[in-house]
Write a protein that binds this DNA or RNA. Structure first.
Lengths: 110, 110
DNA sequence: TCCTTTGTTCGATTATAATCGAACTATGAG
DNA sequence: CTCATAGTTCGATTATAATCGAACAAAGGA
């Protein structure tokens, strides 16, 4: 029972601009590992999950990418066998002006 | 044993500017109730804990004020029987320029 | 001195989140 | 088709955090 639940991987659920919440974004970025991911994305541009050199299990990394995606911070685009991640800069800037820049600046150099 | 542990209430531990962390601040502000507290402080200026009309138990409210204080977001000053809370605006602006303003703006009108 | 007000601390409970390994899925290469 | 790659999902475990009531503490008023 319940293989294949409805909100499954097939459709990679990204929130719309409007349904992003400030609390959700702040929470997503309050984790040092997730913050390091978005710093890297901001500095190097889009990258697949494997390119971050995260020192946690694959399943843990997958969890963190999901938190970022579901908060609206990143976009994940399937490309061949991998998922390309990118910052949702315009959406974030439009919904929460100045927030991403302030956080990136506060997070220091990569 | 262990009444009166050392980091006790007597000295209301506020982190120095330098020992504030971005993750800590983001985490503290990622909770809707705590966000509402700092919105109110930003809008009305300093206020005692009781003035926020929080709909949680006293002990829970006390917990949230502590999280904000220990992250460096607010200052708590004993004054008679109450504690006056204020935003640590200058410290935040100096350590994380633009962050507080971006968050307050994003959090909408009070 | 006793009482009220304001908030803290303690201990327990419940709820969320992080983490991992194992099994799985999808894609593309050989 | 078979295999390797890249990542997801599941289930379990552990760690953090939120919440409450009860007991406590400090300050000040009656």
């Amino acid at each position: 029972m319940s293989l294949c639940n409805n909100a499954n991987m097939r459709t990679l659920n990204h929130p719309s601009r409007k349904s992003m919440t400030l609390s959700g974004v702040l929470y997503a970025l309050s984790d040092p590992l997730r913050l390091s991911i978005i710093k890297s994305l901001a500095a190097q541009g889009e990258q697949p999950c494997g390119a971050f050199g995260l020192s946690v299990a694959k399943s843990t990394a997958s969890h963190h990418f999901r938190v970022l995606r579901e908060a609206g911070v990143i976009r994940m685009k399937p490309e061949g066998t991998q998922h390309i991640n990118s910052l949702r800069r315009e959406d974030l800037d439009s919904r929460f002006p100045g927030l991403l820049d302030a956080i990136l600046q506060a997070s220091g150099p990569v």
